[in-house]
Design a binder for these strands. Sequence first.
DNA 1: CACATTTGTCAAAGCGCTTTGGAATGCCGC
DNA 2: GCGGCATTCCAAAGCGCTTTGACAAATGTG
Lengths: 345, 345
Amino acid sequence: MNLKELSSLLGLSQTTVSRALNGYPEVSEKTRARVIQAAEAHAYSPNTRAQGLATGHSKCIGHVISVSDSAEMVNPIFGDFMAGAGETYSAHGFDMMVTRVGAEDEADTYRNLKARGAVDGIVVHAPRRNDSRMALLDKIGLPYVVHGRSTGVTTPYSWLDVNNTRAFSEATSYLVGLGHKRIALINGQETMDFAIRRRSGYESSLRFAGLTIDPALMSTGEMTEAYGYDQANMMLDVDTPPTAFLVASIICAAGIRRALDERGLRVGKGVSIVTFDDCLSYFANGGDRPVFTAWQSSVREAGATLAEMLIHRIRAPRAPHDTKLWEAAFVEGTSTGPAPGTSKD
Amino acid sequence: MNLKELSSLLGLSQTTVSRALNGYPEVSEKTRARVIQAAEAHAYSPNTRAQGLATGHSKCIGHVISVSDSAEMVNPIFGDFMAGAGETYSAHGFDMMVTRVGAEDEADTYRNLKARGAVDGIVVHAPRRNDSRMALLDKIGLPYVVHGRSTGVTTPYSWLDVNNTRAFSEATSYLVGLGHKRIALINGQETMDFAIRRRSGYESSLRFAGLTIDPALMSTGEMTEAYGYDQANMMLDVDTPPTAFLVASIICAAGIRRALDERGLRVGKGVSIVTFDDCLSYFANGGDRPVFTAWQSSVREAGATLAEMLIHRIRAPRAPHDTKLWEAAFVEGTSTGPAPGTSKD
DNA sequence: CACATTTGTCAAAGCGCTTTGGAATGCCGC
DNA sequence: GCGGCATTCCAAAGCGCTTTGACAAATGTG
């Protein structure tokens, strides 16, 4: 069923039917009701491509997932982020397109998406320090919002970020307060801006506490379970091993827990773990008995909110940029306790 | 830059330019080269919507993620599956659209996707027993492939599935061979066909071994880490607790491991764990020292292959249906060992 | 009751592409 | 020198929708 068929069926012109369905005032409420009823009865939905051609909008948002050779991993937060964003999109009648692309082709992908008119806007994921994507997108005129921020980019843009510096600084102080002096940082890849921020929060709290910043206790890599396991084992094998781990992802924290368990170290007694928690739906860490002491922020809500921001941006491209800095919430779990040998102990 | 501009720039008609770019033979190689070069120089990409309107194809594949109230979880395999499929799509010039929808609106979404001409085909995820989606899609004439199978659906369709029955039957026999007599099954939600298959594999091996099938040792639910943890704890609290766990997902297995560790039970010694492993990129269980003894099959490869199958299907809708039954691969990890009290022990 | 407005509807153009059905052009052999 | 045949190109129609500009019909005004 298309417009032509529907309108001839109703004995009306295509114009009138189109206007009736799109809520234009030039049509009487009586005909509008008749049209809407007929449209529903025949399950008519306007052809997306034709509509897009005529209006110049695609009503579609792009998500570009770039996969570098060094980071073949699929980010575990991906699913939850999409779920959140998808909810917002469908509420607003937008489609969601996801493109997987090698990191080296990312810029071309954006240009192509724009040239083809495939999307009305995009979400920029995992911004790096001095990320060049914002300038590119500004240049080609494709609306966007950023999940995170990019230090070094001075032109304004819309973003939503978690206060990572603060979260990691507080987490470090929290461990210091428990008497820990050897605190390891198992960080994400420090090509990403948020990972750099996390480290700086960690370092500043160590400095404030008068503790030495030991490169041997800091590592950066893909946040997999295996990575956490490996790093924990390596660090525990040295002379003065850490008594606490500060971790960038709950997946990674699970790996660390495994290493500790295997060594017979009691998590929360001998060794403490604090982690950042993205509130992944399949790895819950909340309710009445959180496993890990954590600073948490829902990536799913971030997805929903960023989607909302982007849609606003598309509707009002000249509106001032919107920025949101969310504070992570503290949850005390059972994975932390006083450092061994502390007076309290 | 659009076709009209490009062609007037070249002093050619739109027809010729279009044909040159689309590889039609009616244009001389000399002009073709000239056209291609100009197209690249001006970064021309045909407008997706216009192209789609003219050809009647959208060059886009849909993935519908339905979220029921009972299953709010985002499936952790989602990301990896998409990554695999996305790779194939971009290699073939297809876009990928994902729609998140409440389970009750799933049928409408398919109809709508078809009516709007938004996609050329879709991937059906997580088929249930007697799944009605295949009949619906056949009826509305939307090409599709199924990730999994649906017992009870008799009309042919294209699918790719892992031999879940076999994997779980073998896994059970393996545990039986190690002397285990109380083997728990921590299954996924048994609304899904694959979960039913897994249980039946498990039950048939128990029956074959002359062991009793104890409902107290079988549970079904969303495969989260917390679910594994909870179920393990519950089952270990009864009179004759299981000495082995057979688990449907590595995420869930991680939760079971946590419960065991917490109770001071040594995984692979006192209690064994065997799991199905989807080879998630952030939760690797392989290489030289696999953590879990597992039957594994890469969901990422499944995504890539299903995408390939679907594209074939779209190109040749009348071709006979393609079906692929993959065998899961056995990996021996450190999570299994002889049952306590066994002669070997 | 003639005229100016408003209201409800329509025909047609246009969005950017593909594709059908010609129409030139060049080259061949006789 | 002319018909026949490739070869190379083009004009125009059409995909299904929105939107402009125009036009009847209904309403209001003096």
